[in-house]
């Protein structure tokens, strides 16, 4: 039988980690939901976000929280480049995004993913690095809550809340949601489709790279050029679980995965099996709730 104290501790860690997962998946979700582009290079931008935080720490002494706005700003810039460099040619002037366009952007982002991971291997080498940022641990009865993880979790929820407010309360945010539902009708409202697709891509990249910075708190010695291949699949599961285009779905999906991956090992199930279980959940979700678990 599993030790209850241990389960509680894992539950707390799982919840906190799930919040970070949510931000990362949120980045993928915004791009997917709005432009219908499935960014296969998503993992590589998480990795770049993590390295961004690492170098900001190494040279400027920034802790991961301070790196978040810097990474987000870089991500926004990269997102605009990504949109106009890779997507614009394919999406420009289209009133509906066809399967054919989806395939084209899928292959293009897959190519980018290969390039980025190999260039990263060449530049950063294969050695794992990490940021040593260890605020105290808060004792909650038998459970020790690492404050670094807690601050990161709070920041993550705040980021999702802010993006939700932006999308639901501002003209620009509503224009993004309108575009995601009907590009032609959005144009009839006076909404410039190129501007919206570029901004949504930029926001998605900002979130992804900020998520990479937040993730470093859970990777004290584990940033490598290959971390993308761990966290990108998790992001995809979360988005499908929560429903593409549904913002709070990212949080719910993130928490679900965080808990599964951290709590199952407390019952003697190995971490890799726990990740597999998380992926297995997708099958019933896709069979019975194709729009995600949120109504």
């Amino acid at each position: 039988m599993a030790d209850l104290g241990l389960v509680a501790a894992d539950l707390v860690v799982g919840l906190m980690l799930g919040c970070v997962f949510a931000v990362i998946a949120h980045g993928l979700n915004v791009i997917w939901g709005v432009t219908k582009v499935v960014n296969v290079a998503h993992g590589e931008f998480i990795m770049l976000g993590a390295y961004g935080a690492y170098y900001l720490n190494l040279y400027l002494g920034f802790n991961p929280l301070l790196s978040v706005p810097v990474d987000a700003a870089i991500g926004i810039g990269v997102g605009f480049l990504f949109y106009f460099g890779l997507l614009h040619r394919e999406l420009r002037g289209k009133e509906t995004i066809t399967r054919e366009s989806e395939m084209v952007t899928l292959v293009a982002t897959f190519g980018l993913s290969l390039i980025l991971s190999n260039v990263a291997l060449a530049i950063f080498k294969g050695d794992a690095v990490g940021i040593r940022w260890a605020p105290e641990t808060l004792a909650l009865g038998p459970v020790g809550v690492p404050l670094g993880g807690l601050y990161v979790a709070i920041s993550s929820v705040a980021i999702i809340a802010i993006s939700d407010l932006f999308l639901s309360r501002t003209y620009l945010g509503n224009a993004i949601r309108a575009y995601s539902q009907d590009i032609g009708a959005a144009q009839l409202m006076g909404i410039n489709p190129t501007r919206i697709a570029a901004i949504a891509t930029a926001i998605g990249f900002g979130l992804t790279m900020a998520g990479g910075a937040l993730l470093t708190v859970w990777l004290p010695v584990g940033i490598t050029p290959l971390i993308g291949s761990t966290y990108a699949p998790i992001s995809f599961v979360i988005v499908v679980l929560g429903g593409p285009g549904k913002m709070w779905g990212s949080l719910l999906g993130g928490l679900t995965l965080g808990i599964l991956i951290d709590v199952l090992p407390a019952f003697g199930i190995s971490t890799s099996i726990a990740v597999a279980v998380a992926f297995l959940i997708l099958i019933p979700v896709l069979l019975f709730a194709r729009e995600g678990i949120l109504r």
């Binding site: 003209y171 509503n174 224009a175 539902q181 009907d182 009839l188």
Partner: peptide
């Protein structure tokens, strides 16, 4: 337009607001 093409997942009020974009 033809078929009205409202934004189905947005509320009636948000649809109206978007008209004033």
């Amino acid at each position: 337009p033809e078929g009205r093409r409202l934004f189905p997942l947005l509320t009636a009020e948000t649809n109206l607001r978007l008209g004033a974009y």
